[in-house]
Design a protein around this nucleic acid. Structure first.
Ligand code: FES
Ligand code: FES
Lengths: 144, 144
DNA sequence: TTATTAAAAGACATGAATGTCCTTTATTAA
DNA sequence: TTAATAAAGGACATTCATGTCTTTTAATAA
């Protein structure tokens, strides 16, 4: 469904969101411990998220990652997914043809597009902050 | 969503189904021309489908692939997907944790499981023959 | 039986995603 | 200003999916 890079990106973002909400800035070592992911690889992904302006990074002592408060209040899962995996998940033909077309549909098209669209809408309607809150309340988990 | 191998598997199966319905046995060269896929790689995939008893193969002159009529009348997309990609698409955690668990859900779990389940049901409720018929009627396409 | 045909099988090649390591850059605190 | 810290960046390594090539096996027809 999502690439591993994208999964790590989502996990990281949710964790940073949770920590940002409680006023903390978090370093890469803490993040990978919290979300159980490979450190160097995760660092690369955070670079991408930073370039995409989804998270902010601060170098030096007491540095780390945060999410701008304004951003956090409206950040959707779709933004994280698009930053890492692009929009192929929304647009690609389910059977792998170059383009998904309504005019020359593949045999699975009509069965597939509804599900693809629901996934899109789920991502677009899900706020990162709402997921971080369920985490904070102990209703969901990032490491087990 | 699906691996390339799985996409080729589905395309092949639908094409073989169409040709079987019109009483024809088809060889690998014809198949890859019809579905636009790499020949040797597709041949490997057809071997897997054959082992999974989804299609039947006949060696020698006038050999090729067919789908048993009895099989064809009840063959679901889910069987093809499971033969190639396994059941991970139904079961895997959307954020990549070892298991998807209702008791210790990841933050995306409740948003994700519905979509994952709809995909499962779509595959389980879609007959290969119905897709091959839309193909035969010119309502969908395997090559463009 | 023999020659021909087409799939099966195994070994190998390529490419993309994943993952690691080391150096550089920017920030902070002494 | 210097030392320490932590992220950024680049090069490299590994793994897995994808794809190719060649030989073997099985079926058919002459
Ligand atoms: S054409 Fe294949 S999903 Fe739309
Ligand atoms: S635990 Fe992640 S999807 Fe169920």
């Amino acid at each position: 469904m999502f690439s591993k890079a994208c999964k790590y990106a989502i996990r990281s973002t949710i964790y940073i969101a949770e920590q940002t909400s409680s006023g903390k800035r978090v370093g890469i070592k803490e993040i990978v411990k919290a979300i159980d992911s490979p450190e160097a690889f995760t660092a690369k992904i955070l670079q991408q998220l930073s370039k995409a302006q989804i998270i902010e990074s601060v170098k030096g002592p007491a540095g780390g990652f945060v999410i701008n408060e304004k951003k956090l209040n409206k950040l959707k899962l779709s933004e994280v997914v698009e930053a890492i995996d692009g929009d192929s998940i929304y647009k690609d033909c389910g059977l792998g043809f170059k383009v998904c077309s309504e005019k020359t549909p593949c045999p699975m098209h009509h069965k597939f597009k509804g599900i693809r669209n629901e996934l899109k809408e789920m991502l677009e309607n899900t706020c990162v902050i709402e997921l971080s809150q369920s985490l904070e309340k102990g209703l969901s988990f990032l490491n087990r």
